[in-house]
Design a protein around this nucleic acid. Sequence first.
DNA 1: AGATTGAATATGTATGGACATATTAAAAAT
DNA 2: ATTTTTAATATGTCCATACATATTCAATCT
Lengths: 238, 238
Amino acid sequence: MTTNSDPVYLKIKKELLQRIRQGELRPGDKVEHEEIIAQQYDCARATVHRAIRELAEEGYVERKRRAGTRVASAGNRATRVTIPLVRQEIEARGAKYRFNVLEREIVTPSGVAGAALSSDRALFLRLIHFANEAPFQLEERWINLETVPQAEHATFEMTNPNEWLVETSPYSEAEHFFSAENANKAQAKLLELDENDALFVIERRTHLEGDAITYARLLHPGANYRMTAENFSFSTKN
Amino acid sequence: MTTNSDPVYLKIKKELLQRIRQGELRPGDKVEHEEIIAQQYDCARATVHRAIRELAEEGYVERKRRAGTRVASAGNRATRVTIPLVRQEIEARGAKYRFNVLEREIVTPSGVAGAALSSDRALFLRLIHFANEAPFQLEERWINLETVPQAEHATFEMTNPNEWLVETSPYSEAEHFFSAENANKAQAKLLELDENDALFVIERRTHLEGDAITYARLLHPGANYRMTAENFSFSTKN
DNA sequence: AGATTGAATATGTATGGACATATTAAAAAT
DNA sequence: ATTTTTAATATGTCCATACATATTCAATCT
């Protein structure tokens, strides 16, 4: 609900959103002009503009110059997913975090990793992450040594590759893919599962200004892993 | 890159983001005050404010009154996932969409569905969705008949339940969960898979002002299903 | 009828000023 | 030395106004 202490633009936003949620304004319906709403709330047009602009950014309405504002057609709305760092994810559950480097090798990446990195030299790493000594995530990672040459001499004993990379180039762009796979024999053994058990797979490609940095596959036992997507405007809070 | 035709606030936003991406401004670093940037760009403070506010909303910087603006610590950044309507998803691939209602029954939901709906009467539906006559998604859905009584007499012959619900209460709030499971015998048969093949599972709970509307489980063959998460500020476009 | 031109209009951006408010740092009082 | 009070400051919101620009609708010309 709308709090008295809310700034005016938020009040307008919430009340409009409520009218949409409750079906008073249905997809395709026109929303009043900014000037008219400004009169209703006795405020400046800029204030109304901000309210409706934010609703547009969140996908609730569509705006066109001269044509006005309409409630957007529903369906395929965007949700937010936060992909956590393993350590945080594990420690947030109150468990002890530990990881282990199983493999470390300089390779010429091929296949998916090759396509993702487009580089001749990469550092390949295979790691396992534990929560309270129980296998939590199996990680296969390629780091592009052409764009991140420092990786060649990093030990990855104290900080895992993910944390190391976040430290090294903090705000690189990332793409994520989610899928499900059956565990092969090796994966099953490392994760203490049976062969063919379902795995929840997160793939991540990061790049900086077009240059590929890393490609990683993060494999979780499907039986107890669950990823949550939040709504954009939760209830009427925002 | 910054286009000449970009509005000033976008120019400021992009150039600040670039300084963060390239590591000139690192996590924890202070960003200049709004007034100073306004001087540099010869614009009003409100213009700078909008640029930095949007960067804050996207998680790149953190702002505190009196304390100023600092580059946020990286890691666990949010990404956007769009959960498409099956029909759109299938037709977007150029395939023919068809669905089939396999089961339809009024039940008292128990287990996860019961917890999600907290209702005594629900319509349970089991459906299969085809792409070019190949099984694409298996759907198990409970619709709360206390909040959506009209569902009891809906046929779901032309419009599938998802589309029907989007039509009925367009902007309800939704939560999504992703996970991986092994197909049981029945699921495998319906999806034309082998038993134990990995399934990519999307669970969805929707509610309207606190009242539960529906709970659905959407099961995809893991072998060829892949969900993509986009970045928030793609490159430097936004 | 069809194409071209020309207003009308709703949104988009921007200004420069004002006041509110959270938070910090310095000053004063204990 | 520690706590309390006070002032300084950066961000947050808002206004009234102005002009830019995309898009529609009507008027005009071929």
